[in-house]
Structure formats: C-alpha cells, structure tokens
C-alpha cells in the first residue's frame, strides 16, 4: 500500500491528509508536503491521520522536522490517529508535544 499525501491551505492554516502506509521508503513525499507548507509560514499545521494504516518512526521524524522548520510557535494538530498509530505517538511522547484530536473543526 502506497502513501497518498494531499495538502489544503486557507489563511494561516495548512492541512495535510495522509492515506496509506508511512514508512521510510515513502516519507520523502510527506516531508516535501511539510516543506511546501513551511513556505507559507502557517500558524497552525493540521495533519489528518485517520486513514493512516501504518506509521514508522520515519513519520515521527517528519513531525519533529515540521516543528523545527516552522518554529516552536507553530501549533501542530494530529487528528484522527487511531489504534496502533495513536499508540506509537503516545509511546514516543508525541501526545505531550502536539495537539492530539479525534476530530477537527475550523
């Protein structure tokens, strides 16, 4: 299963939706989306992970990259992460470093 990444932006919010399996072989696509988002200097980066079936640490590294690229003040939201993907985020302390939400409304 490949990874599909789609990006949508409005105002100072950028939304990235991940669909598929995120491992080191495809994480470059996610990284590129974050790099493009960073150019817009958003105040909030919202990542929808409800369709993410697998996430390795390669995905976590992109979250760290996003924060370091966009600055400590950018708010990072992770929305809809479920089951083992959510467990991975929690095991690695990301539940204390990003806003983990079940759903997101503007």
């Amino acid at each position: 299963m490949a990874l599909n990444v789609s990006t949508e932006s409005s105002g100072d919010v950028v939304k990235i939706t991940l669909d598929g399996e995120l491992d080191a072989s495809v994480s470059g696509v996610f990284r590129e989306a974050v790099e493009k988002a960073a150019v817009q200097k958003p105040k909030r980066l919202v990542m929808f992970m409800d369709k993410l079936a697998f996430m390795a640490s390669a995905g976590l590294r992109i979250l760290i990259f996003a924060k370091q690229k966009m600055g400590a003040d950018v708010q990072i939201y992770v929305v809809g992460a479920q089951g083992p993907v959510l467990k991975t985020l929690q095991m690695s302390g990301f539940d204390r470093a990003v806003y983990l939400k079940d759903a997101y409304t503007d």
Partner: peptide, 16 residues
C-alpha cells in the same frame, strides 16, 4: 519528554 523543537531527528526507531 523533550519538546519537539529540542529533539534530535532520529533515534526513535530502535526505541519503538
């Protein structure tokens, strides 16, 4: 326990 901006990129995979 570090904030993301202070974490080195990498090192998580083996831990997981």
């Amino acid at each position: 326990d570090k904030p993301l901006e202070d974490r080195p990129i990498g090192g998580l995979g083996v831990y997981l």
